[in-house]
């Protein structure tokens, strides 16, 4: 069993670390820092922490102003408030203006601590994907969170980084390398491809191992960057295996599944099954109950792969 680590802790620690190393990094909060764990920056490095209050639109505008005078701001709040609530501010002040605004959506998707529909973002990635100039990343574990935050501070332009609240298994070694725009093949295979992103990659990996035991050769891919998406790798998987399963902690509309389907459809049409949150709001409930309800478990991924191959 892999070591478990709450991703929100990893976010807080990574932001504190990068802020300590780079005085141009500032972290902005909209009164959720004790939940998102940016309170680590507030408590250890208050000179690089800005409390904006419950005013997310203002937080994005202030971030843009800070970026315009040379800072690298990381506004952090729950994914739903970091995306749909501020879509126009992100669109004009960060994306159109091509400023170094590095938005971190915390509490992405289902695991929000039973907060339910209003706090569970099912569409943040879909919104951000449609905005020109945005670079979108969904890290898989605490190790990758740190790498992605370091990369975002280095690479020019606006970022949206979607993270989760809950504990996730650490699947990458500490020397893991994150390259923007590149997918990672975790297990090679020739029968079918399972592409995961974010915390769902660990489940894709588990499903791949289960399939192997059943004699099915599954290729497992981690796709941390949703935009720019790794077109070459998707095309290769579409050509070399008999179909693609995508799994994401997001609506099946407009996220990883949408992006993979768009690329495969144009480059090398193949059978695709998109797993994730169906086109619905989610309920409050235990994280794992909700994941099970929507077929977002390793078992359900393996079943979907077998069904796709049998069809």
């Amino acid at each position: 069993m892999s070591e478990m680590k709450a991703m929100r802790d990893a976010v807080g620690e990574a932001l504190l670390d990068i802020a300590q190393k780079n005085p141009k990094v500032v972290v902005l909060d909209a009164d959720v820092c004790t939940s998102t764990k940016t309170c680590y920056v507030r408590d250890k490095l208050p000179s690089q922490f800005l409390e904006i209050g419950i005013a997310e639109a203002n937080m994005i505008g202030i971030s843009a102003g800070l970026a315009a005078v040379g800072f690298i701001p990381f506004p952090v709040t729950f994914a739903v408030f970091a995306s749909s609530r501020v879509a126009d501010q992100v669109r004009m002040c960060a994306a159109h203006a091509r400023l170094n605004v590095k938005i971190v959506g915390s509490y992405g998707g289902i695991p929000t601590g039973k907060a339910g529909a209003t706090h569970s973002s099912v569409e943040d990635i879909a919104i951000m994907r449609a905005i020109p100039n945005m670079q979108i990343v969904i890290p898989a574990d605490g190790v990758e969170v740190k790498k992605v935050i370091e990369a975002a501070a280095e690479i020019p332009g606006p970022f949206y980084i979607s993270t989760v609240r809950c504990e996730v298994p650490t699947i990458f070694p500490v020397d893991h390398k994150f390259i923007l725009g590149k997918g990672v093949v975790l297990q090679d295979g020739r029968d079918i491809t399972v592409i995961g992103t974010g915390m769902m990659t660990a489940r894709a990996k588990e499903a791949g191992e289960a399939l192997k035991k059943k004699g099915i050769s599954a290729r497992v891919v981690h796709m941390p960057t949703i935009k720019p998406i790794d077109r070459e790798l998707i095309k290769k998987c579409a050509e070399e295996t008999k179909g693609i399963i995508t799994i994401e902690n997001h609506s099946v509309i407009g996220g990883l599944g949408g992006a993979v389907a768009e690329v495969a459809c144009e480059a090398s049409p193949c059978r695709i099954k998109r797993l994730g949150i169906p086109d619905t709001f989610v309920d409050s409930g235990e994280d794992e109950d909700m994941f099970a309800k929507f077929g977002m478990t390793a078992d359900a991924i393996a079943d979907a792969a077998e069904r796709l191959l049998a069809s």
Binding site: S47, I62, A64, G65, L66, G70, C93
Partner: peptide, 25 residues
Amino acid sequence: VDMSTGSLGQGLSVGAGMAAGARLL
């Protein structure tokens, strides 16, 4: 032109960010 604008209501936030930045710098 120091900032792209057009969608109303956002410039004062940007200005506040620039002003806060000046103070930090």
